[in-house]
Design a protein around this nucleic acid. Structure first.
Lengths: 116, 116
DNA sequence: CCGACACGCAACCTTCGGTTGCGCATCGGG
DNA sequence: CCCGATGCGCAACCGAAGGTTGCGTGTCGG
């Protein structure tokens, strides 16, 4: 149901700061640790560490540009992560629906017995 | 884009052990810390802590039953969590598609210029 | 050329996930 | 009825992760 790779993607995307960072990079295009930190409630160093984590799992890619290091989202990898999210969501959703169906079936059988 | 409540749900569901626990509870019905720990690579105490976390955000609900404490999934809250997952997924997906569209538009304009 | 800027590295603190080691309540067979 | 087995909670402890401050270094530009 869950592979080790999935876990890496999940834990990368599980942090709210990292999710917001991905949002910012998607909305505003490539950015640096400093530029991102200006829009986040943490310091540049913290952002830098998060970027390292995201880079390690391949969700973003950093390119040195003079004295800056410009990061941008790896679209293919993010698409893969989104697929994992919706996969888990779909699994749970299906189980919830099955449970609901069974519950309703029990309700019906109780109604039948009540008719005895 | 993300509320504090969302963050709680995400961090609760971000842990792979906790995700597996939800899977187990959905598949096998209500369970105890001990019964879950038998199917997980961690001790009963760790499972107990995770259950406390899940209980705090309302994803599961524990009921004392003699010397046991039986936990079961709160279906409504899990449905809410699934909605959050798919919402973020949908947002990113939409942004990715928009980026792809723009990239293709640039490609086309480059092809036009090449014709000069 | 030198100040300003962007970055990386290191030390330190706190929180979180995990374990071990208790003690306490409950269940159930002799 | 009683005592061992079982299930749990609490506390102490440990390593990893997220966060901060401080400092050194490289690059840009007036």
């Amino acid at each position: 149901m869950s592979t080790a790779i999935d876990d890496d993607l999940w834990s990368a995307v599980g942090d709210p700061i990292r999710r917001t960072m991905i949002d910012l990079l998607l909305a505003g295009g490539p950015g640096t640790a400093t530029s991102l930190s200006e829009r986040l409630p943490v310091t540049r160093q913290a952002v830098s560490k998060h970027l390292a984590v995201l880079d390690r799992v391949g969700l973003v890619h950093g390119t040195p540009a003079g004295r800056e290091r410009r990061y941008q989202v790896d679209e293919a990898q993010l698409a893969r992560a989104v697929a994992q999210l919706s996969a888990v969501g779909a699994t749970w959703d299906a189980r919830l629906r099955r449970i609901k169906r069974i519950a309703e079936a029990i309700d019906r059988s109780r109604d039948n017995n009540r008719g005895d």
